[in-house]
């Protein structure tokens, strides 16, 4: 089937199989930040934005993206650098394989949650697994980033 979609604001028209998965499609189109960590929608590594909503690209058919705008971390480089700097200052990226999914989720969370508590942050991001960091360094980075953005007034420990 023929589909039309926008990937990082670039219009793409392509012929695809009906069962093609968005994750594979995006990697085939050069979006290597999108990673596969499981086949069961558990890990959050493949998270991208589709019409401004977070979706797991491993369990989204490309056909569903027809006519839509898909954004990956390749399309959010400045924002990724800004928040990523906070992760880097904690050493919380560690192996980095889960970073793209986490970063795009945090960038979206900032828009959706006002002054979130630690618990709300952890709940929002509970679908983003990480095996290296134990999550604490990520939380420190997120809180410092939110503070700088004026989006959280919580005390930073």
């Amino acid at each position: 089937m023929i589909i039309k979609l926008w990937v990082n604001d670039k219009k793409i028209t392509d012929e695809i199989d009906g069962d093609a998965i968005l994750l594979d499609f995006l990697r085939d189109h050069g979006c290597y930040s999108v990673k596969r960590g499981c086949e069961t929608s558990n890990c959050g590594l493949c998270t991208v934005l589709m019409d401004s909503k977070l979706v797991l690209s491993c369990s989204t058919l490309v056909a569903r993206a027809d006519g839509k705008h898909v954004i990956t971390l390749e399309g959010l480089q400045e924002e990724a650098k800004e928040f990523g700097g906070f992760l880097a200052d904690q050493g919380a990226e560690q192996c980095g394989f889960c970073s793209p999914g986490l970063v795009i989720s945090v960038l979206t969370m900032v828009k959706e949650l006002k002054n979130p508590s630690d618990r709300e942050i952890s709940e929002y991001l509970s679908g983003n697994l990480c095996r290296c960091s134990g999550y604490m360094g990520q939380l420190r980075a997120i809180k410092r980033y939110l503070n700088q953005k004026g989006a959280q007034k919580n005390e930073i420990s």
């Binding site: 990956t72 990226e93 970063v103």
Partner: peptide, 10 residues
């Protein structure tokens, strides 16, 4: 390598 990892470089 931190910044290349957090910005999703290949």
């Amino acid at each position: 390598d931190a910044m290349s990892l957090v910005t999703g470089q290949p």
